[in-house]
Simulated assay, not measured.
Amino acid sequence: MNISGNTVFIPGATSGIGLALALALQSRGNTVIIGGRRTELLEKIAAENPGIDTVQIDTTDAASIGAAAKQVLARHPGLNVLITMAGIMRVEDWRRPESFLASAEDVVTTNVLGPIRLIAAFVEHLQAQPDSTIVTVSSGLAFAPLKATPSYNASKAAIHMLSESIRLQLAGTSVKVVELEPPSVRTALLPGQETSEFAMPLEEFVAEAVALLESRPDAKEIQVERVKFLRYGEARGDYDQVVATLNAADPHGK
Protein backbone atom coordinates (compact mmCIF):
# COMPACT_ATOMS: atom_id res chain seq x y z
CA MET A 1 0.00 0.00 0.00
CA ASN A 2 1.06 3.59 -0.49
CA ILE A 3 2.01 5.18 2.81
CA SER A 4 0.21 8.52 2.28
CA GLY A 5 -2.87 9.98 0.65
CA ASN A 6 -5.22 7.27 1.91
CA THR A 7 -8.44 7.28 3.88
CA VAL A 8 -7.98 4.61 6.55
CA PHE A 9 -10.45 2.99 8.95
CA ILE A 10 -8.96 1.19 11.96
CA PRO A 11 -11.50 -0.49 14.25
CA GLY A 12 -9.84 -1.37 17.54
CA ALA A 13 -7.59 1.68 17.58
CA THR A 14 -8.34 3.29 20.94
CA SER A 15 -5.10 1.97 22.51
CA GLY A 16 -1.98 -0.06 21.87
CA ILE A 17 -0.79 -0.86 18.36
CA GLY A 18 -4.02 0.38 16.78
CA LEU A 19 -3.83 3.89 18.21
CA ALA A 20 -0.08 4.23 17.67
CA LEU A 21 -0.45 3.10 14.06
CA ALA A 22 -3.39 5.47 13.53
CA LEU A 23 -1.35 8.44 14.71
CA ALA A 24 1.67 7.39 12.66
CA LEU A 25 -0.44 7.09 9.52
CA GLN A 26 -2.11 10.44 10.16
CA SER A 27 1.32 12.05 10.45
CA ARG A 28 2.16 10.62 7.00
CA GLY A 29 -0.70 12.50 5.35
CA ASN A 30 -3.55 10.02 5.63
CA THR A 31 -7.13 10.68 6.73
CA VAL A 32 -7.69 8.31 9.65
CA ILE A 33 -10.90 7.09 11.27
CA ILE A 34 -10.61 5.02 14.43
CA GLY A 35 -13.28 2.78 15.90
CA GLY A 36 -13.91 1.52 19.40
CA ARG A 37 -16.64 0.61 21.87
CA ARG A 38 -16.24 3.44 24.41
CA THR A 39 -17.59 6.75 23.11
CA GLU A 40 -15.96 8.75 25.91
CA LEU A 41 -12.55 7.37 24.97
CA LEU A 42 -13.16 8.08 21.30
CA GLU A 43 -14.11 11.66 22.13
CA LYS A 44 -10.96 12.09 24.23
CA ILE A 45 -8.73 10.78 21.44
CA ALA A 46 -10.40 13.03 18.87
CA ALA A 47 -9.99 16.07 21.12
CA GLU A 48 -6.31 15.32 21.70
CA ASN A 49 -5.57 14.57 18.04
CA PRO A 50 -7.24 17.08 15.71
CA GLY A 51 -8.15 15.58 12.36
CA ILE A 52 -8.78 12.08 13.66
CA ASP A 53 -12.37 11.00 13.06
CA THR A 54 -14.06 8.39 15.25
CA VAL A 55 -16.95 5.94 15.10
CA GLN A 56 -18.44 3.73 17.80
CA ILE A 57 -18.16 0.04 16.94
CA ASP A 58 -18.25 -3.28 18.73
CA THR A 59 -16.51 -5.79 16.48
CA THR A 60 -18.10 -8.71 18.36
CA ASP A 61 -21.54 -7.51 17.21
CA ALA A 62 -22.50 -7.97 13.55
CA ALA A 63 -25.17 -5.25 13.73
CA SER A 64 -22.70 -2.77 15.20
CA ILE A 65 -20.23 -3.49 12.39
CA GLY A 66 -22.93 -2.90 9.80
CA ALA A 67 -24.02 0.38 11.38
CA ALA A 68 -20.45 1.62 11.74
CA ALA A 69 -19.65 0.77 8.13
CA LYS A 70 -22.59 2.88 6.95
CA GLN A 71 -21.42 5.83 9.07
CA VAL A 72 -17.82 5.59 7.90
CA LEU A 73 -18.71 5.35 4.22
CA ALA A 74 -21.25 8.16 4.44
CA ARG A 75 -18.66 10.49 5.96
CA HIS A 76 -15.67 9.18 4.00
CA PRO A 77 -16.77 7.89 0.58
CA GLY A 78 -13.13 7.78 -0.52
CA LEU A 79 -12.19 5.19 2.09
CA ASN A 80 -9.59 2.89 0.57
CA VAL A 81 -7.82 1.18 3.49
CA LEU A 82 -9.31 -1.10 6.15
CA ILE A 83 -7.07 -2.29 9.01
CA THR A 84 -8.78 -5.03 11.03
CA MET A 85 -6.95 -4.30 14.26
CA ALA A 86 -9.38 -5.28 17.05
CA GLY A 87 -8.33 -8.36 18.99
CA ILE A 88 -8.13 -9.92 22.44
CA MET A 89 -5.72 -12.38 24.10
CA ARG A 90 -6.55 -14.62 27.05
CA VAL A 91 -4.54 -17.01 29.22
CA GLU A 92 -6.36 -20.38 29.29
CA ASP A 93 -5.95 -23.73 31.01
CA TRP A 94 -7.24 -26.40 28.64
CA ARG A 95 -7.05 -29.06 31.34
CA ARG A 96 -10.20 -27.52 32.86
CA PRO A 97 -13.16 -26.73 30.56
CA GLU A 98 -14.49 -24.11 32.95
CA SER A 99 -11.22 -22.24 32.49
CA PHE A 100 -11.15 -22.04 28.72
CA LEU A 101 -14.48 -22.55 26.96
CA ALA A 102 -16.03 -19.10 27.44
CA SER A 103 -12.64 -17.48 26.83
CA ALA A 104 -12.09 -19.43 23.63
CA GLU A 105 -15.49 -18.45 22.30
CA ASP A 106 -14.80 -14.76 23.04
CA VAL A 107 -11.40 -14.93 21.34
CA VAL A 108 -12.77 -16.57 18.20
CA THR A 109 -15.68 -14.12 18.01
CA THR A 110 -13.39 -11.10 18.33
CA ASN A 111 -10.28 -12.26 16.47
CA VAL A 112 -11.80 -14.34 13.66
CA LEU A 113 -15.47 -13.45 13.19
CA GLY A 114 -14.74 -9.76 13.76
CA PRO A 115 -12.30 -9.41 10.84
CA ILE A 116 -14.48 -11.62 8.61
CA ARG A 117 -17.51 -9.41 9.27
CA LEU A 118 -15.50 -6.22 8.80
CA ILE A 119 -14.15 -7.37 5.47
CA ALA A 120 -17.65 -8.40 4.39
CA ALA A 121 -18.93 -4.92 5.27
CA PHE A 122 -16.30 -3.09 3.20
CA VAL A 123 -15.04 -5.37 0.43
CA GLU A 124 -17.49 -4.27 -2.26
CA HIS A 125 -16.74 -0.62 -1.57
CA LEU A 126 -12.99 -1.27 -1.62
CA GLN A 127 -13.23 -3.03 -4.97
CA ALA A 128 -14.83 0.12 -6.40
CA GLN A 129 -11.81 2.22 -5.41
CA PRO A 130 -8.90 2.59 -7.86
CA ASP A 131 -6.32 1.46 -5.29
CA SER A 132 -7.27 -0.07 -1.95
CA THR A 133 -5.89 -2.30 0.79
CA ILE A 134 -7.14 -4.65 3.47
CA VAL A 135 -4.63 -4.99 6.29
CA THR A 136 -5.18 -8.03 8.47
CA VAL A 137 -3.40 -8.46 11.80
CA SER A 138 -2.10 -11.88 12.73
CA SER A 139 0.83 -12.50 15.09
CA GLY A 140 4.13 -14.29 15.44
CA LEU A 141 2.07 -16.73 17.49
CA ALA A 142 0.29 -17.79 14.30
CA PHE A 143 3.52 -19.64 13.50
CA ALA A 144 4.80 -20.78 16.91
CA PRO A 145 2.50 -21.37 19.90
CA LEU A 146 2.64 -19.76 23.32
CA LYS A 147 1.28 -22.54 25.50
CA ALA A 148 -0.64 -20.18 27.80
CA THR A 149 -2.86 -18.80 24.99
CA PRO A 150 -4.15 -21.64 22.79
CA SER A 151 -7.23 -19.88 21.39
CA TYR A 152 -5.30 -16.72 20.57
CA ASN A 153 -2.62 -18.73 18.74
CA ALA A 154 -5.28 -20.58 16.76
CA SER A 155 -7.20 -17.40 15.94
CA LYS A 156 -4.10 -15.75 14.52
CA ALA A 157 -3.21 -18.84 12.50
CA ALA A 158 -6.72 -18.61 11.06
CA ILE A 159 -6.14 -14.96 10.15
CA HIS A 160 -2.90 -15.87 8.39
CA MET A 161 -4.60 -18.47 6.21
CA LEU A 162 -7.61 -16.22 5.65
CA SER A 163 -5.25 -13.51 4.42
CA GLU A 164 -3.49 -15.93 2.08
CA SER A 165 -6.82 -17.16 0.70
CA ILE A 166 -8.63 -13.87 0.13
CA ARG A 167 -5.50 -12.44 -1.46
CA LEU A 168 -5.88 -15.15 -4.12
CA GLN A 169 -9.57 -14.36 -4.62
CA LEU A 170 -8.99 -10.60 -4.84
CA ALA A 171 -6.13 -10.92 -7.31
CA GLY A 172 -7.08 -8.96 -10.40
CA THR A 173 -9.13 -6.44 -8.41
CA SER A 174 -7.94 -3.12 -7.03
CA VAL A 175 -7.69 -4.59 -3.50
CA LYS A 176 -4.38 -5.64 -2.00
CA VAL A 177 -4.27 -7.83 1.11
CA VAL A 178 -1.42 -7.13 3.54
CA GLU A 179 -0.86 -9.16 6.69
CA LEU A 180 0.74 -7.38 9.65
CA GLU A 181 2.54 -9.90 11.91
CA PRO A 182 3.51 -8.36 15.26
CA PRO A 183 5.78 -10.05 17.77
CA SER A 184 5.02 -9.51 21.45
CA VAL A 185 4.69 -5.72 21.81
CA ARG A 186 4.47 -3.62 24.97
CA THR A 187 0.71 -3.11 25.10
CA ALA A 188 -2.07 -4.05 27.53
CA LEU A 189 -3.02 -7.15 25.51
CA LEU A 190 -2.12 -9.28 28.57
CA PRO A 191 -1.50 -8.19 32.17
CA GLY A 192 2.12 -7.16 32.59
CA GLN A 193 2.87 -6.99 28.87
CA GLU A 194 3.21 -3.20 28.87
CA THR A 195 6.37 -3.44 30.99
CA SER A 196 7.67 -6.81 29.77
CA GLU A 197 11.33 -6.90 28.81
CA PHE A 198 10.45 -9.75 26.44
CA ALA A 199 8.07 -7.53 24.47
CA MET A 200 9.13 -5.04 21.81
CA PRO A 201 8.63 -1.35 22.71
CA LEU A 202 5.46 -0.09 21.04
CA GLU A 203 7.08 2.97 19.43
CA GLU A 204 9.86 0.84 17.93
CA PHE A 205 7.38 -1.65 16.50
CA VAL A 206 5.18 0.96 14.85
CA ALA A 207 8.14 2.90 13.47
CA GLU A 208 9.63 -0.24 11.92
CA ALA A 209 6.27 -1.44 10.58
CA VAL A 210 5.51 1.93 8.96
CA ALA A 211 8.99 2.05 7.46
CA LEU A 212 8.41 -1.39 5.94
CA LEU A 213 5.05 -0.30 4.52
CA GLU A 214 6.80 2.68 2.94
CA SER A 215 9.81 0.82 1.56
CA ARG A 216 7.88 -2.25 0.39
CA PRO A 217 4.56 -0.99 -1.05
CA ASP A 218 3.88 -4.37 -2.69
CA ALA A 219 4.64 -6.48 0.41
CA LYS A 220 2.19 -9.24 1.29
CA GLU A 221 3.42 -9.60 4.88
CA ILE A 222 4.84 -6.91 7.16
CA GLN A 223 7.39 -8.53 9.44
CA VAL A 224 9.63 -6.56 11.77
CA GLU A 225 12.95 -8.27 12.43
CA ARG A 226 11.92 -9.48 15.88
CA VAL A 227 9.02 -11.56 14.57
CA LYS A 228 11.10 -13.53 12.05
CA PHE A 229 12.40 -15.86 14.78
CA LEU A 230 8.81 -17.08 15.22
CA ARG A 231 7.67 -16.72 11.60
CA TYR A 232 10.34 -18.85 9.98
CA GLY A 233 11.16 -21.51 12.56
CA GLU A 234 9.60 -24.29 10.52
CA ALA A 235 11.28 -23.13 7.31
CA ARG A 236 14.68 -22.95 9.04
CA GLY A 237 14.19 -26.38 10.57
CA ASP A 238 14.44 -25.21 14.18
CA TYR A 239 10.71 -25.06 15.01
CA ASP A 240 11.00 -27.18 18.19
CA GLN A 241 13.77 -24.93 19.49
CA VAL A 242 11.72 -21.81 18.67
CA VAL A 243 8.73 -23.15 20.61
CA ALA A 244 10.90 -24.11 23.58
CA THR A 245 12.66 -20.73 23.62
CA LEU A 246 9.40 -18.81 23.30
CA ASN A 247 7.77 -20.60 26.20
CA ALA A 248 10.85 -20.37 28.41
CA ALA A 249 11.36 -16.68 27.79
CA ASP A 250 7.83 -15.29 27.99
CA PRO A 251 6.45 -14.99 31.53
CA HIS A 252 3.01 -16.00 30.30
CA GLY A 253 4.44 -19.23 28.90
CA LYS A 254 5.64 -20.59 32.23
Rank of each mutant, 00 (worst) to 15 (best):
A121T: 02
F122M: 10
V123T: 13
V123I: 14
V123A: 13
E124C: 07
H125P: 13
H125W: 12
Q127I: 06
Q127L: 03
A128K: 13
Q129F: 06
Q129R: 13
Q129Y: 06
Q129D: 02
D131N: 14
D131I: 00
T133H: 09
I134D: 03
I134C: 10
I134R: 00
I134N: 04
V135E: 10
G140L: 04
F143G: 02
A144W: 01
A144D: 02
A144Q: 03
P145V: 01
P145C: 03
K147W: 09
A148L: 01
T149W: 00
P150M: 01
S151F: 05
S151L: 04
S151M: 05
Y152F: 14
N153E: 00
A154P: 12
A154G: 12
A154R: 04
S155C: 08
S155K: 06
A157I: 04
A157Y: 06
A158Y: 01
A158S: 10
I159T: 11
I159H: 02
H160P: 08
H160I: 09
H160W: 03
M161G: 14
S163T: 07
E164D: 14
E164R: 03
E164Q: 11
E164F: 09
S165L: 13
R167N: 06
R167C: 13
L168H: 07
Q169I: 07
T173G: 12
T173M: 10
S174G: 06
V175T: 06
K176G: 07
V177F: 13
V178W: 06
V178F: 06
V178K: 06
E179H: 01
E181V: 15
E181M: 09
P183I: 02
P183R: 00
S184N: 13
V185C: 03
V185W: 00
R186N: 15
R186V: 04
T187M: 09
L189I: 15
L189Y: 07
P191N: 08
G192P: 09
G192I: 04
G192C: 12
Q193L: 15
Q193R: 12
S196L: 11
E197Q: 15
F198L: 08
M200S: 10
M200W: 12
M200L: 13
P201V: 00
P201E: 04
P201A: 02
L202C: 10
V206W: 05
V206N: 07
A207Q: 12
E208I: 00
A209C: 10
V210S: 11
A211F: 03
L212T: 12
E214L: 05
E214A: 15
S215Y: 01
S215L: 04
S215F: 03
S215E: 09
R216I: 06
R216V: 05
P217Q: 04
P217I: 01
D218S: 11
D218I: 02
A219L: 02
A219S: 03
K220G: 09
K220M: 07
K220E: 05
E221L: 06
E221Q: 11
I222Q: 04
I222E: 11
Q223H: 08
Q223M: 10
Q223W: 04
V224F: 03
R226N: 13
R226L: 09
R226Q: 13
R226K: 13
V227A: 05
V227H: 00
